[in-house]
């Protein structure tokens, strides 16, 4: 996702993925994707009893979190839009930036958390795992 966020060494597009109970589902770049906007509508989703699901190959996979890249501004944080989307799917959102991995949850006006997790390099070199080390530590 990070490598696909750049073209010819320049920031190109945000990439988005669902973290599901079956693994990471990286969405394609759509016409609504931009260097400063992730489109999360490429696959059908639904929310049932507070749990969110995404349809892939005929199966509804449970969504545990969202992740997207911030290839543009090196100082970027989670935006209001990022946090507000967590309220649709009731799951946290991660943003992988040039320097830090961020996670947030809650409405932008009053987020439950909006936090730096670790250096991005720790995710990119595999020393941290979102599934094994971060998701279990997030507040339920």
């Amino acid at each position: 996702m990070w490598n696909n966020s750049f073209r010819d060494g320049k920031a190109w597009m945000e990439n988005f993925g669902w973290l599901t109970n079956k693994g990471v589902l990286v969405l394609p770049i759509t016409k609504n994707s931009r260097v400063d906007n992730s489109d999360y509508n490429a696959l059908p989703t639904r929310v049932v009893n507070g749990k969110s699901f995404v349809l892939h190959n005929g199966n509804w996979l449970q969504i545990q979190a969202m992740i997207h890249t911030h290839p543009g501004d090196p100082h970027s944080g989670l935006s209001a839009g990022d946090l507000d989307v967590t309220q649709i799917f009731n799951v946290p959102i991660f943003a992988l930036g040039h320097n830090k991995l961020l996670v947030g949850f809650g409405p932008s006006a009053n987020p439950s958390y909006n936090q730096i997790v670790t250096d991005s390099k720790n995710i990119l070199n595999g020393s941290w795992s979102i599934y094994n080390h971060i998701l279990p530590q997030l507040p339920k």
């Binding site: 501004d73 090196p74 100082h75 970027s76 944080g77 989670l78 935006s79 209001a80 946090l83 961020l102 996670v103 947030g104 932008s108 987020p111 439950s112 958390y113 909006n114 936090q115 730096i116 997790v117 670790t118 720790n122 020393s127 941290w128 795992s129 094994n132 080390h133 971060i134 530590q137 997030l138 507040p139």
Partner: peptide
């Protein structure tokens, strides 16, 4: 440059992430 986002940098310190054991 880089006056990013509406929220500013993350400020809510409620999670202390434990790094993975090596």
């Amino acid at each position: 440059k880089g006056v990013m986002n509406l929220l500013g940098p993350p400020v809510v310190e409620i999670i202390k992430f434990t790094p993975p054991k090596k």
